[in-house]
Write a protein that binds this DNA or RNA. Structure first.
Length: 339
DNA sequence: GTAGGGTTAG
C-alpha cells in the first residue's frame, strides 16, 4: 500500500491497486478491499475502474456475500457514475447468486442486464446452465441452451461439460452419450475437466477399470494430469477397498511431481478408518501437518467421525478442541457423527 | 502489468 501511494501517479497506481485488492480478497478480507475502493482510492485521486469493482464482486461472492455484490451493482447503476457494471460484473454476481441458491435473484439480475443492453456472452449462459444442472433441472438447462443458439452464442467445452455432469448426476447416461455426440458434431473438444467428470462417474458406479483406461490413455497422450484427476481415481480405488491400487497410484502421482492435497489425504484417512486401522489414520493425520498442510474441516470431520464410531469420545473431543483452536468453524457433519 | 464460467474428499 505504501508503495502504491508513494508512486503518487494515479494512472499507474490503478493497476497496482488491482493486485493489492486481489491479494486482500484472496485472504477473505473483502470488507477491507471495499473500504480501499470506496474511500481510500478516491482520497488519493485514484478513481477505481471496472477491474477494481470486479475484484470486489468476486471477493464478495467468494465470501457468500453475493447479496451485497448485487446491492453494489445497483448502487453503481443508480449513482450513474462513469464506471458502470459490464458483462463481467453481471456474470460474476449472477454466478455468485446461483451458487448461494438464489436462482430467482440471479434471473432478475440477468433480466436487468438485458434491459441495460449489456449482451450476455458464453460465460453468462454457462453460469445459468450450470446452475440449472446442479439442481438437476435438465429440461430447463436444455431450454437455456436453445436460447443461447438463438442469440448466436455458441456453446463451448464448459457448456457441454456442465450438461454432462448434470445428466450423470441425475442418472441419465443415455443423455450423456447424446451430449458427447452433439459436442463432436459441433467440433467442441472435451478437456481434462470433462474427462474428470466421466472418470468420477465410472469410479462411483464401480467401474474403476474403465476409468483407469481413460486415465492411461490421457497419460499416453501426454496430457498433464492434475491432483484432481488422481484424487478421482484414488477415490474409486478407496470405494473398492483396493489399498494396493491406491498406493501404486500415489507413487505414480508423486513420481510425476504432484503433491497430495487435502482431498488426497482425506481419501486415505477415510479408507483406513473404514478398515478400522485407527493408528494408521492418526499417523496420516499428523503426517499431513509435517508436509505443511493444515487439516481442514473435512479432514477433522472424517477423523472425529471415526473416533466417535469406535467409542473414543475423549479423543474425538480433543480433536474437536484442536480444530477450534486452529480457527476452523465446525459444520453440521462434524456435529452428526454416527454414534 | 489488473476482472467472469465447467471437475475431486468426510
Amino acid at each position: 500500500m505504501g508503495h502504491v501511494i508513494k508512486l503518487g501517479f494515479a494512472a499507474e497506481a490503478i493497476v497496482n491497486f488491482s493486485h493489492l485488492l486481489k491479494a486482500i480478497c484472496a485472504r477473505k478480507k473483502t470488507s477491507y478491499a471495499m473500504e480501499i475502493v470506496l474511500r481510500i482510492m478516491p482520497m488519493f485521486n485514484c478513481v477505481p475502474n471496472i477491474f477494481s469493482y470486479s475484484i470486489l464482486f468476486k471477493g464478495l461472492c467468494n465470501e457468500k456475500r453475493s447479496q451485497e455484490a448485487l446491492e453494489l451493482i445497483h448502487i453503481m447503476v443508480d449513482h450513474g457514475g462513469s464506471c458502470q457494471p459490464n458483462v463481467v460484473s453481471y456474470n460474476t454476481v449472477v454466478h455468485g447468486l446461483l451458487k448461494e441458491g438464489e436462482a430467482g435473484k440471479a434471473y432478475s439480475l440477468f433480466c436487468e442486464m438485458l434491459q441495460r443492453e449489456i449482451l450476455p456472452d458464453v460465460v453468462t449462459y454457462n453460469s445459468i446452465i450450470s446452475g440449472m444442472c446442479k439442481v438437476h433441472a435438465m429440461d430447463k438447462a436444455e431450454e437455456v441452451l436453445r436460447q443461447m443458439f438463438d442469440r448466436g452464442i455458441l456453446p463451448d467445452t464448459a457448456t457441454y461439460t456442465s450438461l454432462i455432469h448434470g445428466y450423470y448426476s441425475s442418472g441419465q447416461c443415455k443423455e450423456v452419450e447424446r451430449v458427447f455426440n452433439e459436442m463432436s458434431r459441433n467440433c467442441v473438444q472435451p478437456n481434462m475437466i470433462t474427462y474428470n467428470i466421466q472418470m468420477d462417474y465410472l469410479c462411483k458406479s464401480g467401474r474403476c477399470t474403465e476409468a483407469r483406461k481413460i486415465f492411461d490413455s490421457l497419460i499416453d497422450l501426454g496430457q498433464k494430469l492434475t491432483v484432481t484427476t488422481y484424487s478421482i481415481l484414488l477415490h474409486g480405488y478407496a470405494l473398492e477397498r483396493s489399498l494396493h491400487g491406491m498406493h501404486c497410484l500415489i507413487d505414480l502421482m508423486v513420481g510425476n511431481g504432484i503433491s497430495p492435497d487435502h482431498h488426497v489425504y482425506n481419501i486415505l484417512i477415510f479408507v483406513y478408518a473404514k478398515e478400522g486401522m485407527v493408528g494408521e489414520v492418526m499417523h496420516i493425520f499428523t503426517k499431513m501437518r509435517q508436509q505443511g498442510l493444515n487439516p481442514d474441516v473435512v479432514n477433522y470431520g472424517t477423523v472425529i467421525n471415526l473416533l466417535c464410531s469406535i467409542g473414543r469420545m475423549d479423543d474425538a473431543m480433543s480433536q474437536f478442541s484442536q480444530m477450534i483452536t486452529e480457527g476452523l468453524a465446525p459444520n453440521i457433519i462434524v456435529f452428526t457423527p454416527p454414534y
